[in-house]
Amino acid sequence: MDGSRVSRPPPPVQLRGVTYAFGSGALARPVLRDVELAVAPGEIVLLTGPSGSGKTTLLTLIGALRAMQQGSAQVLGQELAGASEAQRVALRRRIGFIFQQHNLLGFLSARQNVAMALELDRTTSEAERLERADAILAQVGLGDRGESRPDQLSGGQRQRVAVARALAGNPGLILADEPTAALDRQSGGEVVRLLRDLARQRGVPILLVTHDPRILDIADRIVAMEDGRIVPASQAEPVRAG
């Protein structure tokens, strides 16, 4: 992995001086202050910190789900400061999202849900999309559940379908927000390890927000946040232990 860390191409994620506040004027409540963060190609970064520390807001900014206010954010080569809605929508197509809840469409089967990630690319045929969906479902160990609807799957299986959906479009970056929060210890661990292995195979970097101390071991690097700022590594140790 270290071999690829050369400074010439921009890293998948490069934040400089990102500041963000909710509300405006006198009521403005800053949630991010001058955040600097880079994610290297293929790197798995865990973002931890107490609630309200701004990690989720940071994730939505990187995922182009929110408009930037101040600072610069280069994500997969796209500058997000001042980016138009269309540019942000286009960027989202190159990012795989995994949410706290699986958020699968209840009226679609597992393979149809995964294929939804591919339907935006109109050059693929329906057969191709379903084939790729089946292939990736097999990789998350659900090769035989392609026709099942989300309500016929267990929590862990649903989150694995969500992982398959996030990976199906060959994203350049995966953003995950507490993907294990709704799962028990065992299935949560399975899901994140599966995510890590598949991302490693593809060389896709992951930025994962979590409170869950049981999954800290999958990370290449752990970044702690507090009060809208990134905490220096030396001070972050207690968080890791906790």
């Binding site: 995922g63 789900l65 960027l91 989202r92 958020n103 699968l104 469409l105 479009g169």
Partner: peptide, 9 residues
């Protein structure tokens, strides 16, 4: 679900 689809692009 609609918001998820929006997040997916």
């Amino acid at each position: 679900e609609y918001a998820t689809l929006k997040a997916m692009g």
